[in-house]
Computed example of a mutant assay.
Amino acid sequence: MINIAERHQYILNKIQTDGAIDVQSLCKKLNVSSVTIRKDLKLLEDKNLLFRTHGGATLNNPYTVDRPVNEKEHLQSAEKMRIGALAAGLIEDNDSIIIASGTTVLAMARCIKPKGNLTVLTSALNVALELLNHADVEIIQLGGLVRKSSASVAGPYSDNVLGNVFCSKLYLGVDGIDLEFGLTTTSASEAHLNKQMIESSQKVIVLADSTKFGKRGFGKICGIEAVDHIITDSGIPDQVKKGLEGHGIKVSII
């Protein structure tokens, strides 16, 4: 049986190679109990060498933090524009859609070329302003408390409107996508609003660049099974793509 120093070195080498590890695989490989592996992972996390997750560990911090929208807009901007362009192309003639908040759905709004009359419900002030100059787009701006960090609203006023409509598609931006935990955002109030949007939509389309996978925010929106389609970039890990498709989710990679 190898000693603790050798176990730790194996774990660190494995996580450097794979980016993430799980407890059960380590137990089989190292022939030790799950209790031992969890203790090892805690010791290594205390030394800032990895981040523990449910059932394993990852090399990158899985927990998201809230950032101002003008700062987030410059992150992965090229990928967001390509994701947005593909998403905008899914809008049909005389469609009625919901657009949530976030910089990737804002990129989508900039790519919209209306086919016939388009009705858009949105919680995002910047999305509404982006679509304001389209004569064929009817905008329903949801009301509520404005979150300055996201330039969007949330609260009971929005809930009341969403409870009386039904749209063909919801275009949803998120802060984190985890195969086990589901979709998350940094705000509990925004997560609640997103749940209401899902209830008011026939199809849920998630727009997320590849940095969002394996991340978890404070507020849970829904489980992964609620999603119909994810549009992302080529940085998505292959095992994550396969996991999503295993749940019956269509994955489009730009």
Rank of each mutant, 00 (worst) to 15 (best):
I139C: 02
L106P: 03
A188T: 07
K250C: 15
N13Q: 11
E6S: 14
K195S: 09
S33W: 01
H192Y: 07
K250L: 15
S25F: 01
I205E: 00
K39P: 05
K115Q: 13
Q76E: 10
D93T: 12
T211R: 09
D178I: 15
H74Q: 13
G55E: 00
D66P: 07
G143N: 04
T185N: 14
D136L: 11
V105P: 10
K195F: 01
V32H: 08
P237N: 06
E225G: 03
E6Q: 14
S200M: 05
D93R: 13
L179I: 14
S168F: 14
L26D: 00
T185D: 13
K242G: 03
N117M: 15
S187D: 08
G243M: 15
A191E: 06
V32C: 05
V127M: 07
L170W: 03
V206Y: 01
N48M: 15
M197S: 02
A135V: 14
G116H: 12
G89Y: 03
Q9P: 11
Y10R: 10
D238N: 13
V146D: 03
Q141W: 04
L86D: 04
G163M: 14
T232I: 00
Q16A: 11
K220T: 07
L162V: 02
M81K: 04
V227C: 01
D66Q: 08
I83N: 09
I37C: 02
P114E: 06
N70E: 12
L118Y: 11
K250W: 12
T211W: 06
